[in-house]
């Protein structure tokens, strides 16, 4: 009975959320876009660490953004936004993937100086996450023995390993939004992301290790988003 109730809990949550969205008059908006910034990636940059695969401008300076916001007051919105930076390549024979996610709980106030034009001011506490993942492909002697007993040949297995680090931050941005339609707008923002990152205490399989020495304490950021909202 208890197990059944537990399995129904997420179901009830989504049901209530969807119901509220459908029957209330929510002022919800979703955004999708990109950002530009220039971090000093330290030992995650091939210039300072020859183990790291080559880095394109997209991987170093571009962010992929998405998020949603809810207007809870005539001039204010809250929401969740995420800016991700990706870098992939090969380290030896293993696949390499580095991700930095800037995850923001946004609080934004705004006003319209003129029709179609909005100025907005955003403050967002952040809980960011960095991951470095290596996926090695190798064969296992024990697997080969077992598979061989069934008449199979050797199979290559992929073995992923991931080191992660989480840290707090604060984003502060000023933006300008132009409404093409009442439900579609283009939004540009400029501001800063501040991070309390330290290279200590990265985690790999519950082991605490030292990570890359990124200098991302204070980063100027420019974003451009397409905003869809009702």
């Amino acid at each position: 009975m208890n197990h059944r109730l537990q399995s129904l809990t997420p179901f009830i949550f989504w049901f209530m959320l969807l119901s509220a969205s459908l029957f209330a008059q929510p002022k919800l908006s979703f955004h999708l876009g990109g950002g530009f910034y220039s971090p000093t990636l330290g030992m995650l940059d091939p210039d300072s660490n020859n183990v790291i695969p080559s880095l394109s401008a997209f991987s170093k300076n571009m962010l992929i953004d998405w998020g949603f916001k809810y207007q809870f007051y005539p001039n204010a919105r809250i929401g969740y936004a995420r800016s991700n930076s990706y870098h992939s390549g090969k380290v030896g024979d293993s696949g390499f993937l580095r991700t930095i996610s800037y995850r923001m709980l946004t609080f934004e106030t705004f006003y319209y100086p003129r029709k179609r034009m909005e100025l907005n001011f955003m403050l967002a506490p952040m809980y960011n996450k960095g991951t470095v993942k290596l996926t090695a492909e190798s064969s296992s002697g024990d697997w080969d023995t077992l598979l061989g007993s069934y008449g199979n040949s050797s199979v290559k297995l992929s073995t992923p390993g991931e080191m992660t680090k989480r840290w707090f931050g604060l984003a502060s941005m000023i933006g300008f939004r132009y409404y093409i339609f009442s439900w579609l707008a283009v939004d540009g923002k400029a501001g800063f992301i501040q991070n309390s990152y330290s290279e200590k205490k990265w985690k790999l399989e519950k082991e605490k290790i030292d990570g890359p020495t990124m200098n991302i304490k204070k980063l100027p950021v420019f974003n451009i988003h397409l905003v869809l909202g009702w």
Binding site: N75, A76, T109, F110, Y111, Y112, R116
Partner: peptide
């Protein structure tokens, strides 16, 4: 534009 043209109080303070 009409509803959001004024910017006073706590929101402007923020």
């Amino acid at each position: 534009a009409e509803n959001n043209k004024s910017f006073v109080g706590r929101t402007s303070g923020c």
